[in-house]
Design a protein around this nucleic acid. Structure first.
Lengths: 149, 149
DNA sequence: ATTATACTATACTGTTTTGTATAGTATTAA
DNA sequence: TTAATACTATACAAAACAGTATAGTATAAT
């Protein structure tokens, strides 16, 4: 299981905004130096976040990027969904068919069940953590709630 | 967030064993046709599982692979740990330093906190699901146990 | 109007991941 | 002992991902 680069750096950029609430928009040069990213790469990230509706861009002098809603209304789920695919989606069987047209496990696939359960579990957690929570370090977890029916 | 190919196909192979408890060892040709994998690729997967101690190999005629312990004693956590890295480990900061020597967020990195919490959360879930559970579809989850201290 | 500043788009390169090809080595039934 | 069967190892090719380079377009202060 891997965190992709877009998810990592995209989340870092979002956190930059969380610490910048209600101030002047952040420019691409500022973002790129703050996060150690090249300017075009920062541009690519912010473009993704913009297309997802998490960020708004103002062009020209005195322009820059800012959040479209307050940090405490943005969930980690929204952010990660914008930056990459979920662990188990409709594309899953296409990815893992080893160059065949169809996955070999048509019909009752037990693998799909476990990933899907796993993914729901994770999404539930992500939906309950906001960008503001992360910026303030205000999140935690209880013990393993796995049940065996 | 992505499931890697090794994780997906490796888990599929392990499930093949779970449905084969106490019978003759599974040969590489059988595994490769059952899962639609090329023979050398199946070999690579089983080699990884063998090095992790999850599977034992017997060479020569009548040989093949079998589990080193019963399916109900093997957790999903062990299996995925053998097949890939965890979501947040010691290598995390190295991966995301954008070709610089050090990550730009030295010291109090709030990103590390969220991934680490997230990873612990996931590991806890994985440790409570066994290969036998998966094979029988016997697993589930409760509602989101996120706390905000 | 001009110019500096800022966002936008596309093409390109290197690295990692995926998966294959090929050539071995070991064991056992006959 | 021979041959069939099975595991093991290394090198290679293709695709996806990560990150850079370059060339624009838009806005507003002067």
């Amino acid at each position: 299981m891997k965190v992709t680069a877009l998810e990592e750096y995209g989340l870092r950029c979002m956190l930059l905004f969380a610490g910048n609430d209600n101030r002047a928009p952040l420019t691409l040069p500022k973002i790129s130096t703050a996060e150690g990213l090249s300017l075009p790469y920062a541009g690519k990230l912010l473009m993704i976040l913009k297309k997802a509706g998490l960020v708004r861009a103002v062009r020209g002098r005195n322009g820059g990027y800012s959040l479209t809603k307050p940090a405490h209304e943005i969930t980690l789920q929204e952010i990660l969904a914008a930056l990459g695919n979920s662990l188990h989606g409709s594309h899953h069987c296409d990815r893992f068919s080893v160059n065949n047209e169809d996955c070999i496990h048509t019909g009752n696939c037990v693998i799909g069940g476990i990933w899907s359960t796993f993914d729901n579990y994770i999404q539930g957690m992500l939906a309950n953590i906001t960008l503001a929570d992360i910026a303030l370090g205000k999140f935690g977890l209880q013990n393993n709630p796995v049940t065996k029916p």
